[in-house]
C-alpha cells in the first residue's frame, strides 16, 4: 500500500471517529425536529452535560457525598448518563417547551438556545474551561489495534462501532417497528392518533427524552477521547447543524448518513489541504442548499 493510500485511510478513520459523533447528535436533532418541530439548540449543551455527568460520576460524586472511595466507572456511566440527561430533557419539555408549541417554532429555538447558554454558564463557573481529562477509561479498551494501514486506539474503534450500532438501532425502531410507526403517524396527524386512543403529549415527552438521551450518550462516549469542557458542545453543535441541513431536516437516515460521510470527508480533506478541513462541511452545506434546498434526504416540496 502506498503512503498516500495509508494516509487517506488513517485520516478517514479519524474522520469517521468524529463522524459518529456528528451522526449521533444530528440523529437526536432529527428525531426531536421530526416529532416536536423544535430546533433544539440545547443539543450541544446536553452533549456537554453527558460528558460532565460521566466525569462527575467518576471523580466528584464520591467526595461530594462523603464516600471518597466511590468512583462510578465508564460502563455504568454509559447507562446512567443517557438516563440522567434524558430525564433532564423530559423535565425541560414538560415544564417549558410544551407551552411554546402553539407559537411560532422560533420560540422553541430561542428557549433551547437560552437553556444552552445557562448550562454552559453554570459549568464554566465550576469547571475548567480548558477541559478536564476523563480518568475512567476502561482498562479493557486501553491500548491500540493494528488495522494494517495504521495503529488505532482501541477505545476509538469501540466508540465508532458502538455509535454505529446505536444509530442503526434507532433507525430500525423508527422505520421498522410498530412503535416507530406510531411516532411517524404522530408526526403526520397528531390529532387523529390521539383520537385513536394514544397519549400523544406523553409520546412527545418521551421522544424529547430519547433525543436528549442520545446527546448524553454521545457525551459519555466523547469523554475519554476529548477533554471534558464546558464549551465542547458549543464547538461541535455548529458542525452538527450543518450536517442536519445537508442530510435534510427531520430525516433519520439523512442524519446518520450525512454525519458519517461528512466526518470522513473532513478527515480526508486533511490529507489534501489541511486548512480547508474545518470549512469543507460548510462549503458542502452551501452547495447542497443551492441544489437540494431540503437536504439530501429531505422531502423536497
Amino acid at each position: 500500500m502506498d503512503v498516500m493510500m495509508r494516509l487517506i485511510l488513517a485520516q478517514g478513520m479519524l474522520g469517521l471517529n468524529n463522524g459518529v459523533f456528528y451522526a449521533m447528535l444530528s440523529l437526536g436533532l432529527a428525531v426531536i425536529f421530526g416529532m416536536l418541530n423544535v430546533v433544539n439548540f440545547a443539543h450541544g449543551a446536553l452533549y456537554m452535560l453527558g460528558a460532565f455527568v460521566a466525569l462527575i460520576l467518576s471523580s466528584y460524586l464520591g467526595p461530594w457525598i462523603g464516600l471518597d472511595a466511590l468512583h462510578i466507572g465508564f460502563w455504568p456511566a454509559l447507562i446512567i448518563t443517557p438516563i440522567v440527561v434524558g430525564c433532564f430533557g423530559m423535565l425541560i419539555e414538560r415544564t417549558m417547551l410544551r407551552w411554546l408549541y402553539k407559537f411560532d417554532p422560533i420560540y422553541g429555538l430561542l428557549l433551547t438556545f437560552g437553556i444552552a447558554l445557562v448550562l454552559q454558564g453554570v459549568f464554566s463557573n465550576y469547571f475548567n474551561s480548558a477541559g478536564t481529562p476523563y480518568p475512567a477509561q476502561p482498562e479493557s479498551l486501553r491500548g491500540v489495534v493494528h488495522l494494517g494501514f495504521m495503529v488505532f486506539p482501541k477505545y476509538r474503534l469501540f466508540a465508532i462501532l458502538f455509535s454505529i450500532v446505536v444509530c442503526f438501532l434507532t433507525w430500525y425502531v423508527i422505520e421498522r417497528t410498530r412503535l416507530g410507526a406510531t411516532l411517524r403517524a404522530g408526526v403526520e396527524n397528531p390529532e387523529l392518533v390521539q383520537a385513536f386512543g394514544i397519549n400523544v403529549p406523553r409520546m412527545i415527552t418521551l421522544t424529547f427524552g430519547f433525543g436528549t438521551g442520545l446527546a448524553g450518550l454521545a457525551g459519555v462516549l466523547a469523554a475519554p477521547i476529548y477533554s471534558v469542557s464546558p464549551l465542547m458542545g458549543a464547538d461541535i453543535i455548529i458542525i452538527v447543524f450543518a450536517v442536519v441541513v445537508i442530510g435534510g431536516m427531520g430525516s433519520i437516515l439523512g442524519a446518520i448518513t450525512a454525519g458519517l460521510a461528512l466526518g470522513l470527508i473532513e478527515g480526508i480533506t486533511k490529507v489534501f489541504y489541511a486548512p480547508a478541513a474545518n470549512t469543507v462541511i460548510f462549503f458542502l452545506m452551501v452547495v447542497v442548499l443551492l441544489i437540494r434546498p431540503a437536504g439530501l434526504f429531505g422531502r423536497q416540496n
Partner: peptide, 20 residues
C-alpha cells in the same frame, strides 16, 4: 374522519395496525 386520515409515511399494514 372525513378526509380518511390515511398516514402517508406508513405502509398499508402499518396503518392497519396503528390504532391500539
Amino acid at each position: 374522519p372525513e378526509e380518511r386520515g390515511i398516514f402517508a409515511s406508513l405502509s398499508v399494514e402499518e396503518n392497519l395496525m396503528l390504532p391500539p
